[in-house]
Amino acid sequence: MSDSPPEFTLTARNLQRRFGARIVVDDVSLALRRGEVLGLLGHNGAGKSTTLQMLSGCLLPDGGEIEICGNDLLRQPLQAKRHLGYLPEIPPLYREMRVDDYLRFAARLHRLNAAQTAAAVAESLHRCGLENVRQKRIGALSKGYQQRVGIAQAIVHQPDVIILDEPTVGLDPAQIRDIRTLIRELADHHSVLLSTHLLAEVEAICDRVNILHQGRLAFDGTTAALAAHDGAPNELEANFLRITGVKP
C-alpha cells in the first residue's frame, strides 16, 4: 500500500429517509476509506439496516447523496453497483439452487465473464470455507453455512465496497471467529461497512465506528477513540451507552 492520501470508496452525505411521518434516518453522512472496516453501531431500531439498504441501492433516500467509487448511486446506479457487494439482514438465497450454481449466478449478475466467474467462485468458496458443501442445495444447509453463502455472494465479484448487515448473527462462536478473520482479511483489499449491535465485534474487527442513535449520527471516530471517549480508556461499553443516552 502506498502512502497516498486515503481514498474514499463510499461517501454518503446528508442521507434522510422517512417511512410515513416517522423519520428513520436523519441527516446521516459517512465516508468509508479503502482498506478499512467501518462499524455501524446502534440499538435496535436506530436506523442501521435502513441506512445500509440505502447505501446498497435497495431503498431510495428521501434526501442526500451517495457516491460509490466516484459514481453517483442515484444517477448512475448500474455503474455504482458494479463496485458493491451487499449482504442484507436476511441472506438473499435461492434455496433450491446448489451453492456453486448460486455463486456462479451472483458472479455473472455482477458482470463477470465466463472465465473470470470460474476463478471467482472457486476463490470465494475457499475464502468462506464452503468447498465441502459446494454441491449441496442451499436449503439443506445449516444457518451458519447459509450465512457464509450470503457472505460469499457479497464478495464473489471482488467489489471495492462490501456492505454486511449483521454478518455474524445466528452463528456459533467458532463460526463467528472465522467470519471475523475473513472480514479482517477482506479489508486488506476492499473496504467493509458492517452493522452490528455487538460491542465485542466492533472491538475485534473495526478500525472506525459510527454510532447511530434514533436515526442520527451520534459518534464518528476510531474504535480506540470510542473506548477513550470522555474519560478513562477501555470503557467501550459505558461510552457507547452514554452516547446513546442510556445510563450506564
Binding site: 439498504q53 446498497s56 458493491l84 438473499p92 435461492y94 451472483a106 449478475l109 455482477h110
Partner: peptide, 11 residues
C-alpha cells in the same frame, strides 16, 4: 424469501 435485494443491489 427476501431474495429481491440480490437483484436490486446488483448492476
Amino acid at each position: 424469501n427476501q431474495t429481491l435485494p440480490l437483484l436490486l443491489a446488483a448492476p
